[in-house]
């Protein structure tokens, strides 16, 4: 492997790139412990802004709503996305396959303002009250594609003969899938669930369209205070969100370790 050797240029570009990605997040976390009221001027270490968060009723309410929406929509997206992945892995060729794959992946690249607006117009046309469930539907539609991508990648690594063997031994196709394939792809399914959870928990645009009065999610609440300026309290809330995301990634990393495949 003489040709693919790493050079100092490679190492430097990677180090700079990663610094670019992480320094902003680290600054927010560091300044969430800033004692000063001026959000960007250091004034000593303090946890007062975290204490202030605990007393911020509307913010806590919004966070709890976001958690509930994320759990429900991630569950739905995981079930639907896994089914879609199985369909794509099994049916190499079926009528409408191109249209089906296009429909699954389109929400990933489609600008969120378009997806959000179109869902809102659907909800209005149906006369639905906007709130918890309409946001759940919007987030499920977006996250489904991401779950499909993750689960499909794992399904393609599997040996199809395992399931075939179970069927040859008399298992029904459903039983063979549940007892053989599903345990093997379980880590990817769990990873997909965690990604769907964070996508929902972090979403501002879809929720702004799909939500109604009385259902304000955490990103919606943060957005309205960010527009008014940088505050130490938002730094603290942002740090907690970064921490939650890192916990989710840690969970996903442990679940999808190659060593756990068998």
């Amino acid at each position: 492997m003489s040709a693919g050797r790493s050079t100092p240029f490679n190492a430097a570009s990677l180090a700079l790139g990663l610094a670019f990605l992480y320094v902003p997040l680290l600054l927010v976390v560091a300044f969430s412990f800033n004692a000063s009221r001026l959000a960007t001027v250091w004034g000593g270490v303090s946890v007062r802004w975290y204490a202030a968060l605990l007393e911020n009723g509307p913010l806590k309410e919004a966070a709890w709503l976001s958690v509930r929406i994320a759990v429900v929509s991630a569950t739905l997206a995981t079930v639907l996305g896994t089914l879609a992945a199985v369909a794509l892995a099994r049916g190499r060729r079926f009528p409408g396959r191109t249209a089906f794959t296009g429909m699954i992946y389109a929400p990933m690249v489609m600008p969120e303002v378009i997806t959000g607006l179109s869902l809102l117009l659907l909800f209005v046309a149906l006369g639905l009250d906007r709130g918890f469930w309409t946001v759940v539907v919007a987030h499920t539609t977006l996250a489904l594609a991401f779950v499909t991508v993750i689960v499909l990648a794992r399904l393609r690594e599997l040996d199809p003969e395992l399931e075939e063997a179970a069927i040859d031994l008399g298992a029904t196709p459903l039983a063979a899938f549940v007892t053989v394939t599903l345990p093997l792809v379980a880590p990817a399914v769990a990873g997909g669930f965690l990604l769907a959870f964070t996508l929902s928990f972090d979403d501002l645009v879809l929720a702004s369209f799909a939500s109604g009065p009385g259902a304000t999610t955490l990103p919606m609440r943060i957005y309205s205070s960010v527009r008014l300026g940088v505050t130490p309290e938002v730094n603290a809330a942002a740090s907690l969100m970064v921490l939650a995301a890192f916990a989710a990634i840690g969970g996903a990393a442990v679940l999808s370790r190659p060593g756990r495949r068998a």
Partner: peptide
């Protein structure tokens, strides 16, 4: 970083 909120 993609897992952390874009807003943040």
């Amino acid at each position: 970083p993609f897992w952390t909120s874009l807003l943040i």
